[in-house]
């Protein structure tokens, strides 16, 4: 599914170059569950933006389903983001002025989905995540765990191939963390999606099939868990 070949990402910050990624090679298979760990500031988020087509590598190739993301035009990238990638953020990133249902619907805006169909899909996905009774609430009226579930619903409503999560439990307490991780795991198994989670939290990483450690802009896959779960 993913093939990363000698990927580098440099940021030029007022003359001094930050080498966020410095020669990353990595393969991620279909329906993989990969956890990315590493100390702060080592390029985890940067790697995720490249996987999700939010940014382009300075050099090297990020190949997704045979297409080099760095070589795609902005329109094609936007299309891929809309169709293939679902994003979950540490800070939930819900649109504060839209209700839970509308936030989920926002993910369908790039498609020519009819209004009724859009609403139906959004409510169905919220229901799947146990939020049917929160559909008309604004993000500010929801708990952190609920907000993250709305965000996950937003990522899932379009049936993405890949779910990319950047510290999805970073802002949650332990109980909620376990609940969200369990949810992601269930979705990964039930839906057959590819799941990539960036996390500091070893208890989250332990659930993954593989753990990639980033340090100094390079990746080493430390653990191959042959999970038969």
């Amino acid at each position: 599914m993913y093939q990363l070949i000698d990927v580098r990402k440099y940021f030029d910050r007022g003359g001094n170059v930050v080498r966020a990624l410095d020669g990353v090679s990595l393969a991620i298979g279909e329906n993989d569950f990969l956890a990315i760990q590493g100390p702060t500031g080592q390029g985890k988020t940067t790697l995720l933006t490249l996987l999700g087509g939010l940014d382009r590598p300075s050099s090297g190739q990020v190949i997704f389903d045979g297409r080099d993301l760095g070589a795609l035009g902005e329109g094609d990238l936007a299309e891929l983001r809309a169709e293939a990638f679902g994003f979950v953020f540490q800070t939930f990133n819900l649109i504060p002025t839209l209700t839970a249902k509308e936030n989920v619907e926002a993910a369908l805006v790039p498609f020519r989905t009819g209004k009724a169909e859009r609403t139906r899909k959004a409510l169905e996905t919220l229901d799947e995540l146990g939020l049917a009774d929160r559909a008309t609430h604004l993000p500010g009226e929801l708990s952190g765990g609920q907000q993250q579930r709305v965000a996950i619903a937003r990522a899932l409503v379009k049936d993405p191939k890949v779910l990319l999560a950047d510290e999805p439990t970073g802002n949650l307490d332990e109980d909620t963390r376990d609940e969200i991780v369990a949810l992601l795991e269930r979705l990964w198994r039930d839906r057959g999606i590819t799941l990539v989670i960036v996390t500091h939290d070893s208890s989250v990483a332990r659930r993954a099939q593989r753990i990639a450690i980033i340090k100094g802009g390079r990746v080493s896959v430390r653990k191959e868990q042959a999970l038969a779960r």
């Binding site: 936007a78 809309a82 994003f87 926002a106």
Partner: peptide
């Protein structure tokens, strides 16, 4: 975020 979920510029 909207761009990340596929909204075009």
């Amino acid at each position: 975020t909207l761009k990340a979920i596929g909204w075009r510029t």
